[in-house]
């Protein structure tokens, strides 16, 4: 395994208990991602895309194998250690935006920084900068219910990049958006990848997303069937 890789998966298998037996969601996965990659996992439902994202995002433990982020094995991390890893190194973008409805746009973006205990003045600078990146600085005081789906996803992007993570995991980020907004979002993400050097890992079946990817990993029945660099 190369030590220059940001993410490394070595013979990773994930099995879930189902009734009396087990279901193998991922089988013997070997993958690595370098810093600054713009890669995606594609495949039909049940192929293991989300499970793989969960493992990389330290939301789940592999049954077998080794997962390293920045060279550190995250398998069997404690809940606190996994939380710290997510807080410091990983950002998430979701299909359904998942903004906290009672907080303003500004406060939603500010939240990851509060967890990092960054001083209020510094937080303000960072939040406004993140909102500027996604072009939403002027709606900072609005509530999620007052903005469109496209804007909400841009807020979610701002929230994920505000702490300047090394990795962003995006699970079907354009699934709820129309074509125009989907392209806008992908343009923003591509720019962030190029300007900030953030490593993006998508899970998607959307051709609009796939079009932007520099590396496409195809999964089927929990196995990698193709790994193509464009």
């Amino acid at each position: 395994m190369s030590t220059n890789n940001l993410i490394e998966l070595h013979q990773v298998t994930k099995r879930f208990p189902v009734g009396d037996g087990e279901f193998t969601a991922l089988s013997d996965i070997n993958l690595s991602f370098s810093k600054g990659e713009f890669a995606g996992l594609i495949g039909p439902s049940g192929s293991g895309k989300t499970t793989l994202l969960n493992l990389i995002g330290a939301l789940d433990d592999s049954t077998e194998g080794e997962i390293k982020i920045n060279g550190k094995n995250i398998a069997n991390n404690s809940d606190e250690a996994s939380a710290l890893l997510r807080n410091e190194h990983i950002g998430f973008i979701f299909q359904s935006y998942n903004l906290l409805p009672v907080y303003t746009i500004y406060e939603n973006v500010e939240f990851p920084l509060i967890l990092q205990k960054i001083p209020k003045e510094d937080r303000k600078i960072m939040v406004l900068q993140a909102l500027e990146w996604v072009g939403l600085k002027d709606i900072a005081n609005k509530k999620p219910s007052q903005i469109s789906g496209g804007q909400a996803q841009r807020v979610a992007i701002a929230r994920s990049i505000v702490k300047k993570p090394e990795i962003i995991l995006a699970d079907e980020p354009t699934a709820n958006l129309d074509s125009e907004n989907a392209y806008k979002i992908m343009d923003i993400l591509k720019n962030l990848n190029e300007e900030l050097g953030i490593t993006f890992l998508f899970s998607s079946h959307d051709s609009k997303v796939i079009k932007y990817l520099k590396r496409v990993i195809s999964l089927e029945d929990g196995k990698i069937i193709n790994d193509e660099v464009k």
Binding site: E80, A83, R86, F92, N98, F111, P112, Q116
Partner: peptide, 8 residues
């Protein structure tokens, strides 16, 4: 969301 943001 809070878990994803890094809260334990």
């Amino acid at each position: 969301i809070r878990i994803a943001m890094g809260e334990s």
